[in-house]
Computed example of a mutant assay.
Amino acid sequence: MPHDIAQSPHPDSPRLSHCPETLPRAAWIAPEWFAREMETIFAREWVMVGRLADLPAGTMRGTRVGAAPVLLARAPDGSLSAFHNSCRHRGSELCREGEERSLGKLITCPYHAWAFAAKDGRLVSTAHAVPTADFRKDDHALKPVATRIWNGFIFLNLASSPGPLTADMPLETYDNWPMASLVTGHRWISDLDCNWKAFWENYSECLHCPGIHPELCEMVPVYRQGIMGENEAQDWTPDQPTGPNLKAGAESWTPSGAPCGPSFPGLTPEERARGYTFVTLWPSTYIVAHVDYVRAVRLEPVSPTRTRLVAEWYFSPETLAQPGFDAATIAAFAKLVMEQDGAASEMNQRGIASPAFTRGTLMPEEYEIHRFHQWVLAAMAASKGVPA
Rank of each mutant, 00 (worst) to 15 (best):
Arg25Pro: 08
Ser354His: 02
Ser252Tyr: 06
Ala117Arg: 02
Leu216Trp: 06
Thr280Phe: 05
Leu142Asn: 02
Phe34Ser: 01
Gly257Met: 09
Trp282His: 00
Met38Ala: 10
Lys137Arg: 09
Pro265Lys: 10
Phe135Arg: 14
Thr285Trp: 04
Gly261Arg: 04
Phe153Arg: 10
Ala141Asp: 00
Ile189His: 13
Pro178Phe: 09
Ala328Phe: 06
Leu23Ala: 03
Pro178Asn: 12
Pro241Arg: 09
Cys109Met: 15
Val291Trp: 02
Arg350Thr: 07
Leu309Met: 12
Thr329Cys: 02
Phe325Gly: 08
Ala334Glu: 01
Glu271Ala: 07
Leu55Glu: 01
Ser92Gly: 10
Asp4Leu: 14
Phe264Asp: 12
Phe315Ala: 00
Val47Arg: 14
Ala258Lys: 15
Arg96Gly: 06
Ser252Asn: 08
Glu339Trp: 04
Arg148Phe: 14
Ser86Tyr: 02
Phe372Thr: 01
Ile369Cys: 00
Arg74Asp: 04
Asp4Tyr: 11
Phe153Asn: 14
Met347Ser: 14
Asp191Glu: 09
Trp188Ile: 07
Asp341Ile: 00
Phe153Trp: 12
Glu21Cys: 14
Arg61Lys: 07
Lys197Asn: 10
Thr132Gly: 15
Arg148Pro: 15
Leu182Pro: 15
Gln374Phe: 02
Pro214Ala: 12
Leu309Ile: 03
Thr280Lys: 04
Arg90Met: 07
Ala334Leu: 05
Val49Asn: 10
Leu309His: 09
Ile41His: 15
Ala258Gln: 08
Gln7Gly: 05
Thr242Ser: 10
Ala127Arg: 05
Arg101Glu: 07
His10Asn: 11
Ala75Trp: 04
Lys119Cys: 09
Trp196Ile: 02
Pro162Asn: 08
Val376Glu: 11
Val294Ile: 05
Gln234Ser: 12
Arg308Ala: 01
Pro317Cys: 10
Asp134Arg: 11
Lys143Gln: 14
Thr285Gln: 05
Pro304Ile: 01
Thr305His: 07
Gln374Lys: 03
Gly98Asp: 05
Gly211Cys: 00
Gly78Val: 08
Arg306Val: 02
Tyr174Thr: 09
Trp253Lys: 08
His186Gln: 06
